[in-house]
């Protein structure tokens, strides 16, 4: 799991059925100082994070598959928490 900043969203109609109904947010991995590094990733979002909020992204597919209730889903990245802005 790593820190990331929500920097966008995508919409898609032709997709693996397990993505149906999920918010797909573009998350940019950031380091503790907040500077971006690496490629943006698209994560499913159960916590309705807002634009430019700092979130925690999990790369564990097992937990994501349980969230989408489809054991054959290729889903991987999932937002597991939103960082409290006061705490940084």
């Amino acid at each position: 799991m790593y820190l990331a900043r929500v920097e966008g969203t995508i919409t898609s109609t032709v997709k693996h059925p397990s993505f149906g109904g999920w918010r797909l947010l573009i998350c940019q991995p950031i380091d503790s100082a907040g500077t971006a590094f690496g490629c943006p990733v698209v994560a499913i979002d159960p916590h309705s994070a807002g634009m430019h909020e700092i979130v925690i992204v999990s790369t564990d597919g097992k937990a994501a598959r349980r969230a989408v209730r489809d054991n054959r889903s290729p889903v991987r990245h999932m937002i597991t928490g939103i960082v409290d802005p006061k705490a940084t």
Binding site: R5, E7, G8, T9, I10, T11, S12, T13, V14, K15, H16, F19, L24, I26, Q28, A36, P40, M51, H52, P74, V75
Partner: peptide, 15 residues
């Protein structure tokens, strides 16, 4: 590596 979805619209606002 597998194709999970075809993108229709992108809304991208990087800081």
């Amino acid at each position: 590596a597998i194709n999970g979805l075809l993108v229709d619209k992108i809304h991208y606002r990087p800081l």
